[in-house]
Amino acid sequence: MDFIGAYSANNLIYLLKGFLVTIEVSVYSIILAFIVGTLMGIIRYAKILVLSQVIALYVGLIRNVPLLLVFFFIFFALPEVGLKMSVFTASVTGLTIYASAMLCEIVRSGLNSIPKGQIEAARSSGLSYISTVRYIVLPQALKRMIPPIVSECTSILKGSSLAIVITLPEMMRSAQIIYNYDVKFVIPILIMVGILYFSVNFTLSFFARRLEKRLTLS
């Protein structure tokens, strides 16, 4: 092991550049997946004909295939039918497709966890269905959804490392290039990668707990 050589300024700068790509891909994917997953979850919860069934089929399909296959399909198969994307776009698209299916089920389960009696009481008081969901169901469900949503966000961050197979210059690819130069760098570089992943995921979990506590007290 060579910690001094592995942690040279050039190596750390190169690794941090990959880390920034990882963060950028993850942030875009989280935002898009949250929007798409929330909309699909609400549609499934409302049991809108046809759309709900199509989404259920989509979720069932995506949840039962590996993320790696999604990356391969988007980057290598779609160009065969004229849909070619950059590595960055393909990575964001793959993560969004995969994570939105998971978030759809999180949102649907959260909404379904609210007692039906509250919904019936709101409806009988004159609130429309949309207003009931917006003002009665969603605020309560959100408190219950925070932990699994944060867990899915950390999964997106970790899942971005699989984009190495389509040559995304993210952190794991940067690490691989560094320790391929000298085998003595493998352990030090992987330790640093682990620290960087941990720091982001721990920060996400910390703020999620704070938010969950604040919502519970409010």
Rank of each mutant, 00 (worst) to 15 (best):
D2L: 04
D2G: 14
N11T: 07
N11W: 02
L15V: 00
I30V: 04
I30R: 08
F34A: 10
F34K: 02
V36R: 00
V36P: 04
G37C: 12
R44F: 13
Y45S: 10
A46M: 12
I48C: 03
V50A: 10
V50P: 10
Q53H: 14
V54W: 13
I55H: 00
A56C: 13
R63H: 13
V70R: 08
L78I: 07
V81K: 03
K84C: 05
M85S: 15
V87D: 11
Y98N: 06
A99I: 11
A99E: 07
A99Y: 11
S100H: 02
M102I: 13
C104F: 11
I106G: 03
V107Y: 09
S113R: 12
Q118V: 12
A121Y: 08
Y135P: 08
V137P: 01
Q140T: 05
Q140D: 09
A141H: 01
V150E: 14
E152A: 04
T154L: 00
S155I: 10
I156T: 05
S161N: 05
L162H: 07
S174L: 07
A175K: 08
Q176F: 13
I177R: 14
D182R: 10
D182F: 05
V183P: 08
K184G: 00
K184S: 15
F185L: 01
I189N: 01
G194F: 15
L196D: 02
Y197G: 04
S199Q: 12
V200K: 00
N201P: 01
S205T: 12
F206W: 15
F206P: 06
R214G: 09
